[in-house]
Design a protein around this nucleic acid. Sequence first.
DNA 1: GATTTTACTTACTAGTTAGTAAGTTGTCAA
DNA 2: TTGACAACTTACTAACTAGTAAGTAAAATC
Lengths: 181, 181
Amino acid sequence: MDLAESFLQDKGFNGFSYAHIAAELGVRNAAIHYHFPSKEELVCAVIQRYRDRFQLWINNSRVKNLSPLEKLDWFFSIYTDARADNGKVCLAGSLETEFNSLPGSLREQTEALTHELLAWLQATLQEGREAGVFQFNGDPADKAALILSSLQGGLQMARALGTDKFHTVVEQHKQDLLASA
Amino acid sequence: MDLAESFLQDKGFNGFSYAHIAAELGVRNAAIHYHFPSKEELVCAVIQRYRDRFQLWINNSRVKNLSPLEKLDWFFSIYTDARADNGKVCLAGSLETEFNSLPGSLREQTEALTHELLAWLQATLQEGREAGVFQFNGDPADKAALILSSLQGGLQMARALGTDKFHTVVEQHKQDLLASA
DNA sequence: GATTTTACTTACTAGTTAGTAAGTTGTCAA
DNA sequence: TTGACAACTTACTAACTAGTAAGTAAAATC
């Protein structure tokens, strides 16, 4: 599952095969089919684990007790770390790009994951604005969609243009949110 | 080439084959290999055509004489139209997601295309700010990267969450840029 | 100690992939 | 009228794809 997740973020759903994972593990194709009968089930389990992990994180007191700005920094660090790890891309973003060639259950998982990321970001933005730390126009839900989409897109853009381009996007977001009215 | 471009935006580089194009055209695989010996050459030609088309557009007086706000609306409309056309995704964004499994020449093309999109957006933002129409913090290059990344990411997110989510992202950008200081 | 279960292996299938070689047909120019 | 060429076709290859069936060895259970 670690390898599947890594390949997903690296090459996309259509970019890796059982053979790639088997080779890396030093086992045969069939060994993976034993644990995950179909590719759909394998990737489904990977996304589910990713979702569970995110829920665990945001419900953990170590994140829950952070200030809005610290929460945002923590969230950004997920993407910065992904970028630092061989230019990996957000799992949700990778799946969305291939959404139209994805089996049904994976579309649902992708949708659910994206909703969960957005919901948390929206709540954090709202919390920060109410605390007077963040400034932005309009609905927190819209600003959350803007930020998440640009994080996902930024990771992809960084592959063509380098890590710096991604860091400036993150910094620009912070500058926009923290600019005094 | 039209079909290849469409498939690229729909399924990604690893998501379509010669057979898909041949079937749609009612010809055999080999007929496409006759015109484009390798998939790399086919996709390379598609990106080159896309780049040429963009250069033609931005150098055409119909776009060149537009106001900064109208230029921005025109740029956004490229993405809105793509979204409206069966949920297609930005060509640059699609290629960047699979960047790590792309042949060398396609990486260079993707890089060049992204640079050209960014450069035009940056110039337009700068022009708008100098004309007093746009307000934003920091370097126009950074704001351009933020906007482009969120357009690319937004198109992908819209696949999972629907067209509305993309429109709110576009509206949010306009609101941010036009907000009186 | 016998039996079941787990985690594999070897060996395979049917379908798809990009790509090639050689033959066919229609058009157009000399 | 001939010949060249463009645009295909049929027929193929080698590699890869997800997925399966049957066999095996070790560990856990009874």
